[in-house]
Design a protein around this nucleic acid. Structure first.
Ligand SMILES: [Mn+2]
Ligand SMILES: [Mn+2]
Ligand SMILES: [Mn+2]
Ligand SMILES: [Mn+2]
Lengths: 225, 225
DNA sequence: AAGCTAAGTTAGGTTGGCCTAAATCATATG
DNA sequence: CATATGATTTAGGCCAACCTAACTTAGCTT
């Protein structure tokens, strides 16, 4: 009736679940310090919140060994990822936002929008399936395309791939990637890599460029044969 | 840079300022109990918040005699009214919402949207000037059309008018008004009124109807000669 | 003028979410 | 296998925003 359905979690709880989901997918259980650094919060505060999340049945906590989402926690996390990504996609496609300006806006709106609004936004832009940074949008039912991708940092010389997705949490990095043409859909060839964390040279759409391993780690590709 | 500009008030503070603005416009100073009933909050809680608002320079409080907005408080209140109404207008015009579903959604989104988003929404629907319920939308600079209106309850028999605005805070009332044709723009003639709070008979677009004085008080018209 | 009543404030409590500083734990390594 | 180190939790605070219960004030009304 209100549009928000029964569940009522606070915005901080929703943000914690999102980052726990992402850490868990990358590294098994989510460690306190990982959560803390992702949220820019003191580790002690995370310990406190983890207790509350466990009390609410959203995570399982093994003391000193990190947390894992329960089924309910995962459901909420996927719901938030859907909201975040639908909003990002809507802002770029319907309201003319650049891809580097949508993340912060979505980070707040995701907690305020009703399910109905999310569904209407998704429909209004033709249900694109991915957000502006290539991240898959979960369905209303929580289905998501979880396929594993390879980052540019892992590519071998002469390997070719197509950019599928980039990290979206740093606006200036997004702008730089945009300048280089490293956007979803772009074809890339890894040329060579200097040792000891040196630059990685790439061919992107007939241009060449060299990027550091850290930046390369935030661009994921589908390897082509 | 973040899109939210320097000011950072909490959502409750923003909601208090909005209702204080509206009460003050209708009845001079805003009394504690008026604020409390509009926000569905205990009067004691309002006393506490009023102190915080006064500490922040948003209201002047004369003990036992209500609060008035300071210039800064009024600025913030008008900014919130703008946000609320732009969002309502956008939801109906761009996303197909009915006029009875937009208020609750706007009540939350108004605290989360950046100024940029509000401006983009307004531009996307052609800056209509009023929200779906006929309420004027303040400009970015805080200008608002403050003209006084007459409610249907104050009309004399045989007087004619055009509906300009209706109260938007009760969805079922909005639906009923919609059924009766009492929507902004509709021409109305007051036929007669029964004494002792009895029904008010109206002609609305060639149909006739009778409504109670309370409902009549939530429809404002511009009187025609 | 005294007293009643409604409005308003104060006192004291709760909850969520953050903090710093001080323990405590797990574990790798010498 | 003892210990140093880093990760984690606990202890103790703070602040916003709510609550109920008890008290105080303003403004009549008799
Ligand atoms: Mn968020
Ligand atoms: Mn994204
Ligand atoms: Mn609100
Ligand atoms: Mn409205």
């Amino acid at each position: 009736m209100t549009g928000r359905s029964l569940e009522e979690y606070t915005a901080p709880v929703e943000d914690y679940l999102k980052v726990i989901y992402e850490i868990e997918r990358a590294s098994g259980a989510a460690a306190t310090t990982d959560i803390a650094s992702r949220l820019a919060i003191a580790p002690a505060s995370v310990s406190g919140m983890v207790r509350r999340l466990a009390d609410q049945g959203l995570v399982d906590h093994e003391r000193y060994h990190g947390v894992r989402l329960t089924d309910e926690g995962r459901r909420v996390a996927l719901r938030m990822l859907r909201r975040h990504r639908v909003i990002e996609a809507y802002l770029t496609r319907a309201l003319g936002y650049e891809w580097d300006r949508v993340h912060d806006e979505a980070e707040r709106l995701e907690h305020a929008a009703s399910d109905e609004l999310i569904d209407r936004m998704e429909a209004a832009i033709g249900a694109p399936g991915v957000d502006p940074h290539g991240a898959p949008i979960p369905t209303r039912e929580g289905q998501i395309d979880e396929r594993e991708l390879v980052s540019l940092a892992e590519l071998e010389p002469r390997q070719m791939g197509r950019v599928v997705r980039v990290s979206d949490d740093d606006a200036s990095r997004l702008r730089y990637l945009g300048e280089l043409g490293l956007v979803p859909g772009a074809r890339v060839t890894m040329l060579d890599r200097a040792p000891f964390g040196g630059p990685i040279r790439l061919r992107v759409r007939k241009a060449e460029c060299a990027i550091g391993p850290q930046l390369a780690g935030s661009v994921w590709v589908e390897v082509a044969e």
